[in-house]
C-alpha cells in the first residue's frame, strides 16, 4: 500500500460525504420534474443541513445519553460503510481490510442504534417506527446477505474490488443468478432507503412512516447528522450496485490522474442514471400497505436464495 493509495482513499471518503446531499437533491429534482413541478434547487439539501446545524437542538427531558450519542454513531458507521465501497477507483487500502459482509454488518449496527434511539424517548411514534424497522430488517438483512453470497460464490471473493474486477473479466457472462442477485439488491436498497413503495421519505403521515417515525424526536444538529447519514446510505447502495454490476470505467488503484478523472466521470454518470431509474420507478408505483412490505422484501430473500441454488447448476455446466 503506497502513500498515494491512502490519499485516494481519503479523497473517496470525503467524496461520498460531499456528494451524498447532492445525490438526494438530484433525486428530488428529477422527481419534481417528472411530476411537472419546478422543484427545489439540487443544492437544497446542503442548505437544509446548514440550517439544521445552526439551529438549537431540542432534546426531550427524559432522553438518555443514548439519544444524544446515537446520531453520531449512526453517521459514523454509515460513513465508514460508504467509504468501503469503491466509487471512482477500486483496490483501495480500506477495501482490502473490510469486505462486503463488513459493510452489511456496519449498516446493521446503524440500524440497531437507530431503532434504540427511536425507542429511547418513549413516544408512541418512535416505538412504532422502531418495531416496523426491525420487522422489515429481519427480512431485508438476510436478503442482502443472500445476494452477497450469490455474488461472492460467483466471483470467488467477498472483496468488492475483486468482485468488480471479476465482472470485468471473461469469467462473467449473462447469468441468471446475477440477474436474481441484482433484483434482490435493488429491492433491498429500495426498502433500506425508505423509498416509495416501502416508505415515503417526504411525508409525516403516521400510518405509513417508518424511518421518519424513528427520527421524529430529533432536531437541530442531531437531525442534520441523521439526514446526512440517510443521504450517505442512499449513495452507498447506488454505488454498490454500480460498482458490482456496471464496473466499466472504474479506475484501478495506482493508475494515473487521467484514469481517476475518467473513473470519476463514469461514476457520476452511473449514479445519475441509477438515480433517474429509481425515481422513475418511484413515480410509477403507488405506496404499499405496510403489511405488504414483508411480502415485497420476502421476494428479495427468495430471489437471493434461488440465485444461490441456481449458481450450483451453472457451475456444473461450465
Amino acid at each position: 500500500m503506497s502513500y498515494s493509495d491512502w490519499l485516494i482513499q481519503l479523497a473517496q471518503t470525503a467524496l461520498v460525504l460531499g456528494t451524498a446531499p447532492l445525490l438526494s437533491g438530484v433525486t428530488r429534482k428529477i422527481r419534481a420534474r417528472l411530476l411537472r413541478r419546478q422543484g427545489a434547487s439540487v443544492l437544497q439539501p446542503y442548505r437544509d443541513l446548514l440550517k439544521l446545524i445552526r439551529k438549537e437542538a431540542v432534546v426531550a427531558g427524559n432522553a438518555s445519553w443514548l439519544f444524544r450519542a446515537a446520531p453520531y454513531l449512526i453517521f459514523a458507521t454509515t460513513w465508514v460503510a460508504a467509504a468501503l465501497v469503491p466509487t471512482f477507483a477500486s483496490g483501495l487500502p480500506l477495501g482490502a481490510v473490510a469486505d462486503i459482509i463488513v459493510i452489511v454488518a456496519l449498516l446493521g449496527t446503524a440500524r440497531f442504534l437507530l431503532a434504540l434511539a427511536g425507542l429511547d424517548v418513549g413516544t408512541s411514534f418512535g416505538g412504532l417506527g422502531s418495531s416496523r424497522e426491525m420487522l422489515f430488517a429481519s427480512l431485508a438483512e438476510p436478503a442482502m446477505l443472500m445476494a452477497v453470497f450469490t455474488l461472492s460464490l460467483f466471483a470467488g471473493s467477498t472483496q468488492l474490488s475483486s468482485i468488480s474486477a471479476y465482472m470485468l473479466g471473461p469469467g462473467a457472462g449473462v447469468n441468471i443468478s446475477l440477474a436474481l442477485a441484482l433484483v434482490a439488491l435493488i429491492i433491498v436498497s429500495i426498502g433500506e432507503n425508505a423509498r416509495i413503495p416501502v416508505d415515503n421519505p417526504a411525508t409525516h403521515l403516521e400510518l405509513t412512516m417508518i424511518h421518519e417515525a424513528m427520527i421524529l424526536e430529533y432536531s437541530g444538529r442531531h437531525l442534520a447528522v441523521l439526514e446526512a447519514a440517510a443521504a450517505v446510505k442512499l449513495l452507498l447502495y447506488l454505488s454498490l450496485i454500480a460498482c458490482v454490476f456496471t464496473p466499466w470505467g472504474t479506475a484501478v488503484a495506482g493508475a494515473g490522474a487521467l484514469a481517476y478523472a475518467a473513473g470519476l466521470l463514469a461514476w457520476a454518470v452511473k449514479l445519475a442514471l441509477l438515480a433517474f431509474l429509481l425515481v422513475l420507478f418511484e413515480t410509477a408505483i403507488a405506496k404499499m400497505r405496510v403489511f405488504r412490505v414483508p411480502e415485497f422484501l420476502g421476494i428479495a430473500l427468495m430471489l437471493g436464495l434461488l440465485g444461490t441454488i441456481l449458481l450450483f447448476v451453472s457451475k456444473v455446466s461450465r
Partner: peptide, 25 residues
C-alpha cells in the same frame, strides 16, 4: 462457447423463476 451455455442457462432458469411467479400470483 460459454456465452451459448449462459444463454441456455438464462432461458431455462427464467422458466423456474416464472414458475415461482405462478405460485405467487
Amino acid at each position: 462457447s460459454p456465452l451459448d451455455s449462459d444463454i441456455a442457462h438464462l432461458l431455462a432458469g427464467s422458466m423456474v423463476l416464472l414458475s415461482f411467479l405462478l405460485l405467487y400470483q
